[in-house]
Design a protein around this nucleic acid. Sequence first.
DNA 1: TCTGGGGTCCTAGGACCC
DNA 2: TCTGGGGTCCTAGGACCC
Length: 423
Amino acid sequence: VGEPPPLALIDGNNFYVSCERAFDRKLEGVPVLVLSNNDGCAIARSEEVKALGVRMGEPAFKLRPLIEKHGVRVFSSNYVLYGDMSRRVNDVLNQFSPEAEVYSIDETFLGLSGFAHKDLWDHAQDMRATVRRWTGIPTCVGLGPTKTLAKLANAVAKKNPVFGGVCDLTHPAVRGAVLRAFAVADVWGVGAATARKLAGLSVTTAAALRDLDPMLARSLGTVVLERIVRELRGIACLGLEHVPPTRKGLAVTRSFGAPVSGLGGVLEAVATYATRAGEKLRQHGLVAGQLCAFLHTNPHQPGPRYHGARSTRLVPMSDDTRALVAAARRCIEAAWRDGFAYTKAGVILDDLRRREDAPRSLFEAPDPRAAALMRAMDELNAKHGRHTVFPAAMGIQRAWKQRAEHCSPRYTTRLSDLPVLRA
DNA sequence: TCTGGGGTCCTAGGACCC
DNA sequence: TCTGGGGTCCTAGGACCC
């Protein structure tokens, strides 16, 4: 029995940083850092920034001296730009294989059945070069018979420049040495909790995990860990998902730009998040059956803490902004406690299904004007910009709005932000 | 003294991912 | 002063059914 057909995992290097660099040559060769929402912490680092010792998720305020000292170029996250660049990269990859699964904003699995083994490496290099030329994004490629091995190969290619950007683990002979040198905590699907348990059994490398008894793995870390063991042995347990499955839940949650202690401010914020959630629902043609709203104080600070949340059923299931806003406000009013400085709130929708599959209630006939109203709002906001029309419950001042003090232009999705070439 | 057996469905919480 | 956002999957246990 042969091994399954090869898979490739293509992954953008320091993806958000590379998106910024694609439009500004002056960012080449200098330290570049991209911050999370609210300019809170480090989420993408150029090689120069990694060399300065900045870790993933490190709070931005702690980095301030280092940023000053080394002239680090700092960016707020620009998801409109990154999302569009991701789409462009995938357009290129689709020309190399029709079997694609977009796994995340910067990673795609490709099925490469039909390629002779000796051609794989050239093919992978060709993909890298084409993506680089057509989008400006540098990538690495991992090749293997299973998703887990392709992920592992990709991590190896990224970490060791000697591989030239491509690591091929489709050949069983080279796998052993690579797996013996690979830390088990870095294997895809092995998190901190599982790594601790494995360390207790002296399993510290990917090779040792591969050699673990699958039943023991199952008792240690559920069927998920058992699958990882088998995948490391070259037995595919995780298929390519060409068509993304319909999503099960959807959330809009944000930290505030500054703490909020009045009920009015939090109600405005969740009305805004519920409004955004409604837009997302309608984009996907979905309705929600359940809504949960929460608020909480800063978990990183000492002092009085509170986390409040309430959920409610949406009957009938809905994608109507007015129903979502009303439900979210009711939940927050019920969860509210005076006397705290709140730093974050959110709206979570669950029990999603396609609008045409939603159960109808026996006595209420849907009002056709409701759908027309939502459509009109969506069209106005699409044409004239977000928040051209919005529920009054969102407020006008929105003093709780997030920080984003270093945002780059939306180079590829907004005419006014197009890059300009000067002679 | 002594109280069945076999299901399904739902939810909360943990673990993990990027 | 100051620490992101948005997902998935799995399991255990409770509620409920006949």
